[in-house]
Amino acid sequence: MKQKFDIITSTCVPLPLENVDTDQIIPARFLKATDKKGFGENLFRDWRYDKQGNKIESFVLNDPTYGGQILVAGKNFGSGSSREHAAWAIADYGFRVVVSSFFADIHKNNELNNFVLPVVVSEAFLKELFDSIYANPKTEVVVNLPQQTITNKATGHSESFEINAYKKHCLINGLDDIDFLLGNKEKIEEYEASGKSC
């Protein structure tokens, strides 16, 4: 899971729907596992397969025209349930980056905690990116975390994106929050001694 992050250049998978909730990313019946493995198989399960388990050819993950490590989605991606299984499924499927104009808060954190980078772009950049991908599915996008930029190579247009300096450091160095928190137990004990907790 702790995959260091630097610069990623890849083609994209377009999913122009808005408000994609985590129940669609991974339906509840697949949440019964007690480990983190294999969730990619059921990513977007009910859009990807019919009731008999046959592939739904029209769904983008089943369309060989599109592929790559970057998922490009409509606004408000990852709303609803806090299930981190959604982030595990995205990572396990092979996506390293999700691009959208807006993310739900909990899911965004879950992606970051699994070394998947959520990149927030403007509505205009997103629309142009969808157009580029549909015009040429081989369109590549460059996501440069150190520089905090995303570039649509088809148009040459770039945008900068935000990420807090701490999380950026974690992604680039493959560190997680527990590594950080375990390193400052004294501060936690000091806080407890202050009597401010309930």
Binding site: E84, N110, N113, I178, L181, L182
Partner: peptide, 11 residues
């Protein structure tokens, strides 16, 4: 998320 649950359990 679950990573955060682990974080709270640990610290």
């Amino acid at each position: 998320g679950t990573s955060e649950v682990e974080m709270v359990m640990a610290s």
